[in-house]
Design a protein around this nucleic acid. Structure first.
Lengths: 203, 203, 203, 203
DNA sequence: AATGAATGAGTGTTCATTCAT
DNA sequence: GATGAATGAACACTCATTCAT
């Protein structure tokens, strides 16, 4: 129990440091000072600087994955749109409640090295895959118009990522999440063109 | 002339190195080896490691800005949609033709330090501002439905950024750009819902 | 205790190196080799190269100051001449016993940079001030003839400095100090003119 | 003639730079900027940085030597005291009129390296030798009381050096030299003790 | 388990000197 | 003679990691 506590303490210190300064500008000294432990102790709980960073990232990725539930159709399941909203709500809540982790993932995780880049890329591809699957299902069910589901999945992924970054920087109160999500859905479902406009005009 | 050439040579070497390994994992030694020059020569053309990185980034930012022309309405101007397409075409072409620069901007520029982060943030905010202005104009002209233009600008920005990253990693041939742009526009204008579907179903 | 020892070891190595080669021709490598420690260890005990030099100098200045006791008149105090002799004896002993420190102060400390120069100048001015005060007291007590005490203080200071430099280069045995001090005092008190000589001859 | 001029220009620039910043803090860049010449040109006139410094120093040493005329007795010669005064006057004038050179000799010349140190030492020893010779002559002629002429020569040399340093830092006007020289002579000849005082008191 | 002194490979930067033009 | 771009040896300093206590 004590051991777990100390590990947590170090993790917390590291998260705070990495979020503020990024990987390279965070020294082990900074982390151990924040955690109030000795230099050697750090290496009892983590292999090295890189590993604690990866560990933080991995944790976050798992958490995010947990937020995304496959959208399924069925009597016992909710309206697919509602399932989608729930996914978004969980993800936004996770990020707003953990702005430091968000910062690490969105600002500092990319570009560390080949290995790390690959992990991040894989993670996003994974999400893109899930979006793609959902799109394909939607198309098959004729809920969604015909489109290139691969490209579209990245469009959706990108818009959500960017909004998360914007929101975690500006929003402190998670109660404001719902209107943001509605905006995403409106954008994604209906697009921007004025529905009252003659379709001739914009083509 | 010779002097210009050498500067270019160093820049090219640095761009290649930074793109591959990022800022921190690129040593001056690597750059000068790639450029085939002596250590001291580097410092004849650039103040220090940081400055050459900033210089590369600044250059790219200027190039990107040059791709984005304000969308304007008028007899002599093209259809606004066509203007929008041209903007996107220019940007995608720039990135596809300069995959290394893209990589530096998208992967390695963020998270270097406070100052650099601010510059990047400012750059993106600037673009978001332009998108926002265009949206407001579109709303006023009733080409675009009512929406939160700030949030939507980030949605659009994000979807484009993500697609650029995806495209520069996978696309080698710039002739493939047009269909991608069409996909973006379809997504942004009409959204994803199947227009044949009863609106009741998806609300 | 161990820690103190290591600091002393580094200081000793640095003093020896600086005395031999001066500040600029002494590299950190030289110091750590002499001290038998690793590069990083040096920086555990001293901030940087400059600081260890300043530290050595500062120490020496304090030691020298400690040698100089204010000459005071009073029943419990010795003959002022004896007090003066004691001051000189302590100073010469300090220098003869620490020829390396002497060398650093007299040869290598001046001309390092503005800041260092100022410190040295201040130190010497300080001593000159003390000499001046002593002179003024002596004049007031009519032990000493009328003279310009400021100028004279520099004459005295200079003669002692030069002799110290000469003595530390040539004298190994501190038992030889006394005659030297007598020579200084004779010179300073009675001057060089032959007292048997008609005063007319030399004016 | 032109060639001579350029050499002079470089020398002047170097003297000014060395006087201000010392040997190590003066870069070739500084010198050539001050002199308004190109990098390579410097090396047409001087072998390297060290050589121009030595050259400056050597020049000054020769000038100083020229100030010092052997004190000789004879019908055609002036009073020896007057000869001594003339020597001092010439030296002080030289230094006061060339404060930069003074600074280089007194502050920055010592401690450069073994070779340079030796040259300086030799120069001062040379002067001390001359003083010693004069002392010996004075003793033989019974103008000067018995003393250790070697030690005393350093006392005299030191007092003059220190006063020169003080004077060049504070005195701008060479007309003020005479009283200073009188002070030196009074100090050196008669010492400081009050002549009216019973000799018992101070022994 | 905890400590923190010790390590040393690695890096950015400077600057006197050279040499082709 | 004059130039100044090019050179590369040399150096101070950092910091993740280790290991004896």
């Amino acid at each position: 129990m004590l051991k777990k506590n100390k590990r947590e303490k170090i993790l917390k210190a590291a998260i705070s440091a990495f979020a503020q300064k990024g990987y390279h500008d965070t020294s082990i000294s900074k982390i151990i000072n924040k955690a109030g432990i000795a230099r050697g102790t750090f290496y009892l709980y983590f292999e090295n600087k890189r590993q604690i960073f990866d560990s933080i990232l991995e944790n976050l990725i798992v958490e995010i994955d947990r937020c995304i539930k496959k959208i399924e159709i069925g009597k016992e399941r909710q309206n697919p749109l509602e399932q989608l909203k729930d996914n978004l709500r969980r993800i936004f809540t996770l990020f707003v409640e953990n702005p430091e982790l968000s910062r690490i993932l969105l600002r500092h995780a990319a570009g560390l090295d080949k290995e790390s880049d690959q992990k991040i890329t894989e993670f996003y591809n994974n999400i893109a895959d899930k979006i793609e699957d959902a799109l394909k299902l939607g198309i098959k069910m004729e809920l969604i118009r015909d489109c290139n589901p691969r490209i579209t999945s990245f469009l959706i992924l990108g818009s959500i990522k960017e909004l998360i970054e914007h929101v975690t920087l500006t929003m402190k109160n998670k109660s404001d999440i719902n209107p943001v999500i509605d905006e995403i859905l409106n954008f994604g479902l209906h697009g921007l063109k004025n529905p009252g406009l003659s379709s001739l005009f914009l083509q």
